[in-house]
Design a protein around this nucleic acid. Sequence first.
DNA 1: TAGATTGTTAATCGATTAACAATC
DNA 2: TAGATTGTTAATCGATTAACAATC
Lengths: 219, 219
Amino acid sequence: MVKKDQGNSELVSIPEPTLRRLPIYYKYLKMKFDEKDRYVSCTTIAKNLNLKSIQVRKDLQVTGATGKPKVGYHIESVLSAIETCLGYNNVKDTLLVGTGHLGLALLGYKGFREYGLNIVAAFDTDPHKIGAVYHGKKVYNLSQFKLLAQRLKIQIGIITTPAEVAQIVCDQMVESGIKAIWNFAPVHLMVPADVIVQNENMSSSLAVLSKQLLERKRS
Amino acid sequence: MVKKDQGNSELVSIPEPTLRRLPIYYKYLKMKFDEKDRYVSCTTIAKNLNLKSIQVRKDLQVTGATGKPKVGYHIESVLSAIETCLGYNNVKDTLLVGTGHLGLALLGYKGFREYGLNIVAAFDTDPHKIGAVYHGKKVYNLSQFKLLAQRLKIQIGIITTPAEVAQIVCDQMVESGIKAIWNFAPVHLMVPADVIVQNENMSSSLAVLSKQLLERKRS
DNA sequence: TAGATTGTTAATCGATTAACAATC
DNA sequence: TAGATTGTTAATCGATTAACAATC
């Protein structure tokens, strides 16, 4: 009980911009590690990711990782700090609804494993799809969602349905005890206050992209 | 030349957070309009989108749209202000590379039209896919990319390839004169300073989602 | 008219950046 | 040792929020 702040990095609330950058550092550092690098300075990280070195330093600080002056950061330690910080090492089971192209893309994405995300099964209402197995994940009838969600105590749901039915699916998820929804359908979902929604909003990214393009053209 | 600031809303640089919210207002207002509403107050918008009314007011302000005290904002006017502001009414042609599930999902997404984005054609290296037509868009051999990009003077490229080849594709795009890249591959791309990259970063959203979930559980 | 709602100016808050001392 | 790089405190910047006057 003498040391203060030791190991409580998870308890400190992390600014969202930092939170969003941590997975980017993580991927970059993994690559560096695979290339047999063992230490890296924040200057190098910054240069490669188009950031400022001071920002990298500040960001890594919140994970609890420390570096050595002159030497830089021990890549393996930072990786493990980020893993702890973002909960990559405890698996979060999820259920996905909607097996269109986007749903299948997510089902097949191997990278989620690395982030501790496990898509257990998929759901659809299309009789042609129910019963099929994609990327090792079975597609169930949506009517079974609640049963499975409750039995497996699933907390996270992924919506990759057409926009028109997303709210209905969302309601079902909420009713099944889902506490966080990752929404890829292009609609704003209405949920009770105790449920979290994270929208994957392509139109927002597109707005940023095309505005930047316009500004560049002007100069 | 008497009025100042008239019609130059496009020239004012818009804060990125606002820029990201504009498409969300746009979709919401379109829905309201389809429901035969003609005016809406920022209080109502805020309530429905989980924002603060003052923020909505500030955001709409940058589009040049104005409201009427007591009445609210004329939905149609705001829609058209956002359209102008985000360039929804001049079509931006793009080429997409990578016709996996994600690529097909984007090819098939009708909503892009509304944002002024038009995917002209797709590219792949898989002989089984080349020549196919998905959602009315033809798949060409990647080797033809430069030819088509230059002939059609394409400025925006979309990357939906596996991570391993994304950088190579990116380099080709840059060489073909592409000035903005919308990247869905989970890698950080290296580009010259005059090229814009917008990363669709699922790992960042996931980080935010799972962190929020963790925080909720604690309380 | 009365009051709901906008528009605008000022205050606050939080993230980024700068500066520099500590240190391997 | 000398100097590159971290860690930390302070300054800046920009977005959000508050307050309130203007107005339909």
